[in-house]
Nucleic acid binder design. Structure first.
Lengths: 188, 188, 188, 188
DNA sequence: CATGAATGAGCCTTCATTCAT
DNA sequence: AATGAATGAAGGCTCATTCAT
């Protein structure tokens, strides 16, 4: 493993664990066993290393499905599943890396966690109310659908925040409709 | 508007725009028109202000639906919609605030944006392939459902990263099933 | 107990425990249960309070012997003993208060402690060597006299540092002679 | 003289003159002619430099006697004298450095000085009273022995305050006895 | 008498980056 | 290619003190 690779490995370990700002160059070069000069020999800046680490984290191991151009024999479902299930473990690393605001701040992390839970529980309760009032199908698992609704919305907000969607409100509304078409008691 | 309120207003403006680490106390107190000492008279730390700003951003204006205990006359759908659509605008602020890693780093921001787009497009392409092969309903909007799939997964990862779900893989798989039950050509 | 007295009591508690610089006005007024304004109503500055606390610590309870002018019936030994033994307990408070340099600095405190011990042990060892070589009386307790020698010297340095003696080297040498006249094997 | 040495030299000059808290890093690096970053390249903290300076002040030049293991030809008296007289000049630096409480506070310094003098004078007066009443040998120099008594006690308090003695009262009493055995008129 | 919000200079420390060797 | 001493701006935060109320 040469210098560049050792530095990348350090980044892969430190950024997810401590975030961008929580990781100093000193940490990186110490773990990698290179000098500061050595670091700048391989990377232009700390940021460049971070970008490289994000890249590896999100992509490592699933470039193949994307590259596939010809209609595949495998089902779309299978392929999509593969495309997204593989990153599950990497995903936490990724968010940990990028969600820098909460690092080192138990106060903030806890508060955000509480807020998310509050959303999920409120939604779940409303779904159960809907069941009681004959608006929502009795057969659905309110906790699961609550998670699904909140996940969808949070995910959409997230995507929109990183790179603006053209018409986020419209998109959200249509995704919302998709969900309600399934869980509403009287199908249209 | 007294000192504390002016500081909060500054935080509400600066954190979403420049992230936690990108916003210095100097920026905050200058904008608020108070002294550094004044800041620490009202808040214990920069972090405490950040937590307060996160709170306001995510909660301001929609505590009411949660508080409602008695079965409401309004439909669950309507209420859930209200619960989550109101925060749409605030949400971007929120993610911008918390997604600190990308602040001040155009390289990284762009790369993450590219990666998300790549996911969405790959998924969309696979859905179209599925339509061609008779696996996926012809009537669905592949772009919308691709966005919905990616949003759901990203949102779930996000929730899991902030506060671990009990069985994230199982939950993800069941949400995935929910989706495929709708878009698969042959209903079960 | 009025305001001034409550503040003094706080100082008496905090300065010995945390030193001058380790004790903030905030600590003082909080413990005393007065406002900052209240503090400055009773004392001109933090320093003035410190001086008042030093005063009380070193003098409380033994002004009497000093005031006594007429030849007393009690023996000088008894009186000197009373003069200096009473402050034993206060003394630690006093030094703790004034030895500010080591507060909050375990490194420094430990090092100084080591150095003192090293002095005492070295001296003790030399005395024992002296006994073996017939220079020092066999009957003396080397550990005790080592402590006595070091105490005398440290104390002299200390006095000299706070307010310069006229001829410290001469004084030290004569005190040293006083000691050796007692412990040397062959009395002159 | 390299960076580290220049910084140490600055510490050796500034800490004794202005105390730990009275000396700012700015002072140190300015005098040493290095940058703040440079300082932290050589020392972990201001405290570490302080510890290093204490070390040099108290030990420079007299490690040798301590190292000597084999019975020496020189007399114990000579060696002890060397061990402790050398530090006389350094001692003032040392106490000045560590007695931070009085720095910048003429009020306090003066008061402490007064108190010490008061002790010495009171003791001297009592000794003279003892001479008049036939309790104390006429031949002793009351001023010198007063200084010796106060030095011994202050030194003992000091040692005890920095690192507690096992039985300070007992030790004090025995040292006191040692002194009185010499100065009391009627030997027992 | 008493309050406590406000001050702002100053504190120690960290940081990514540079460059002579 | 590699080193690591040096940089110095900027960081968050504390402090004794003041003063309008």
């Amino acid at each position: 493993m040469d210098g560049r690779e050792k530095i990348l490995a350090s980044g892969l370990e430190l950024f997810p664990a401590k975030g961008f700002h929580g990781t100093s160059l000193r940490d990186i070069v110490r773990l990698a066993g290179v000098s500061k000069g050595g670091f700048y020999h391989h990377f232009e800046s700390k940021e460049e290393l971070f970008a490289a680490v994000v890249e590896r984290t999100l992509f490592a191991g699933n470039e193949q499905p994307a590259a596939e151009e010809s209609p595949s024999a495998r089902s779309a479902e299978k392929q999509i599943e593969e495309l997204f299930f593989a990153p599950l473990r990497r995903a936490r690393s990724y968010y940990a890396m990028v969600f820098d605001g909460q690092k080192g701040s138990e106060i903030v992390r806890k508060r955000i966690s509480e807020i998310f839970h509050h959303h999920i529980e409120t939604c779940s309760k409303l779904l159960r109310q809907g069941q009681e009032q004959g608006e929502v199908r009795d057969s659905i698992d309110c906790d699961l659908w609550s998670l699904q609704i909140v996940s969808t919305l949070e995910g959409c907000f997230l995507l929109h925040s990183v790179s603006p969607l053209e018409n986020p409100e419209e998109s959200l509304r249509r995704m919302f409709d998709n969900i309600w078409r399934v869980i509403r008691k009287v199908d249209i």
